[in-house]
Design a binder for these strands. Structure first.
Lengths: 198, 198
DNA sequence: CGCAGCATGTTTCCACCGTAAACATATGGA
DNA sequence: TCCATATGTTTACGGTGGAAACATGCTGCG
């Protein structure tokens, strides 16, 4: 019932892609139920057959965002095998900079529908960070949760402040952020701490 | 012209306070131009005489938020004279937890009116962090901007993820966040690095 | 003193939004 | 064949921000 379209041809997926396109082209403020429906070529009431109102559609878009977010984390880790934590941080920030509107939606203020698809996607990104933190031997950070919290918070803080242009005062003329490369002075990666579990 | 009210009695301030009250009581989604006007006892078109539409009102509310944010930073610093950076971080997070809706507005996705009052208030908080970073001798963080960016990003990341309940998986049963106290393993505070300049 | 001008606030209207219900249409199985 | 149901449309409603016309009261100048 979800991959065998009747009238339109997988309208559910079309609506999510329409939302992602609107986010890229026009930003978060333009992300409207009616706009998504129009871009998908259907009436504004059609989405109700596939999502629980606007919040349901936003939850589906956000879930796709977390899947891409997880991919960005893995890409960053793969690009820096000798320092996976730093690579994950770079991937985290790169994703936010490449998809600012989507990032704002994912971590924005709006309360989304409690969707199992969304939970699973978000947990995917979390699992990547958890796997990375496993190999992080931060001086003073005792347990795994502490290391993960510190890593996540640092990455998210840089990403969010960058998206909101709040770190503008700290960025160098070439656009890079000072301290990002030196941000893990005391880490040393243990062997056997690959990309992530799951 | 701004402190000598004609009809209402400082409606501008009343509207900002109404907005802050709505944020506290009902959250960010309830923060509406019409709701603020109603709470201040005027028609929904009255705010237009004092603000440039909704974004102008939100900018004024956000400016007041940054003033309180700066006060929270200073309070956190004063509470930990031996470790001002850690104190500022605690103040940053405490403010976000005490005023989640206001924090979301301040660092949320909505593009606010470019207001000199808002810029000044935001720069006030920034100056506090800059003054703290001056005294931060983080191993590997070369210049002042780097230290400030790291400090700010870490504080903001913890605060934002806490507000969005995203760090729920990392919080201890008693509600504290692991790693927060041990988060500055290598810092040592220099003498003569007080609360902040300005 | 009195009136003109302007700051302030209200009323009314408009376009857009999300939601809901009634209605239309196409699909697939009995 | 024919009906139950999934899918999509039309229409309507309340709520939002914004704009214009109108009303009200202060303030300063003659």
């Amino acid at each position: 019932m979800s991959d065998k379209p009747y009238h339109h041809g997988d309208l559910r997926r079309a609506l999510v892609e329409a939302g992602l396109g609107i986010l890229e082209e026009s930003g978060l403020e333009a992300l409207t139920l009616r706009a998504c429906a129009a871009r998908a070529g259907v009436s504004h009431a059609a989405p109700r057959n596939h999502f629980d109102g606007l919040t349901g559609l936003l939850a589906a878009i956000t879930a796709e965002g977390f899947r891409r977010h997880e991919a960005a984390l893995r890409a960053g880790i793969a690009a820096a095998p000798e320092a996976p934590q730093l690579g994950a941080l770079r991937g985290y920030v790169a994703f936010a900079q490449a998809n600012p509107a989507l990032f704002k939606l994912m971590f924005g203020a709006k309360k989304l529908h409690d969707d199992p698809e969304l939970s699973e996607a978000a947990n995917g990104s979390l699992a990547v960070l958890a796997g990375i933190a496993e190999g992080l031997d931060w001086p003073g950070a005792g347990d795994r949760e502490a290391a993960m919290a510190m890593l996540w918070a640092l990455a998210h803080g840089v990403a969010d402040l960058t998206v909101n242009n709040s770190l503008r005062a700290c960025t160098r003329p070439d656009g890079t952020l000072p301290g990002l490369a030196e941000i893990y002075p005391g880490y040393k990666s243990k062997k056997g701490a690959p990309g992530a579990p799951s």
